Simulated scan of single mutants.
Amino acid sequence: KLVPDALAEFIARHPRINTRFEVNNWETLGRLLARDEIEFFIADIRQFETDPNFQTRELSPRRGRFFCRAGHPLLAKDSLSTNDLFDYPLAATRLPAGVRKLLAGFSGKADFSLNVECEHMPALVQVVSQTDAVGLAMLETLALHLERGELALLDFRNLPENLDSLSARCGIVTRTGYRLSPAARALIEIIVELDGIEAEEARRSA
């Protein structure tokens, strides 16, 4: 939500500037940035903050939650454990190493791979809403579907609700030593501005 809102504001302020908006996983975006095909991107910065080739600017963290369709069999259970989670396909965007490690530990496997990996969130939500797959996504991307009753959140008793590993440490990633264009700098400042507004609204409603 943050990036489309920021892009809409940027277009309103600078209607004559051409922009390229690409949705992809953090690994692909990192390669595009390294090849100078893009100027910056937003992702979980844990993959980049220790790499000297990249610079990161932290934004507000985004909370990750497991979700499923309304009427899913898991919703009929009084109490859920992660053992129940692994009885169903898991669908999400490309997972950071820390989240894969966490899920591997709960699943009893050396490594963990998704049954469905998709970077296009509307398509991912549609898959979950039409199947018994369990999704993992940032809470803000699910808000409208939750309000409509199309999706429901899942809580697992052995998985803390506010587990840091499932929250994305979102930030802006740029290439070290690269001078951003005025347009890129302007868009970044709008992103930071809107992120601050969202964070303040979240604090007031908490």
Rank of each mutant, 00 (worst) to 15 (best):
F112Y: 15
S113R: 10
L114G: 08
N115M: 14
V116T: 05
E117P: 10
E117L: 07
C118N: 14
C118S: 12
H120S: 11
H120W: 12
P122A: 03
P122C: 05
A123N: 12
A123F: 15
V125M: 14
V125A: 13
V125C: 11
Q126N: 13
Q126C: 12
S129H: 05
S129Y: 08
Q130R: 09
Q130Y: 03
Q130S: 09
D132E: 14
A133P: 04
G135W: 02
G135V: 01
G135R: 02
L136I: 04
A137Q: 10
M138E: 13
M138N: 11
L139I: 07
E140H: 15
E140I: 06
L142D: 03
L142M: 07
L142R: 06
L142K: 09
A143C: 10
A143K: 09
L144Y: 14
L144I: 01
L144S: 14
L144C: 06
L146T: 07
E147P: 00
E147T: 11
E147G: 01
R148E: 10
R148D: 06
G149H: 12
E150S: 06
A152Q: 10
L153C: 10
L153F: 12
D155W: 02
D155F: 01
F156S: 03
R157D: 13
N158V: 07
L159R: 02
P160A: 03
P160H: 06
E161D: 09
E161N: 05
E161S: 08
N162G: 04
N162D: 14
N162S: 10
L163V: 07
D164W: 07
D164T: 03
D164C: 01
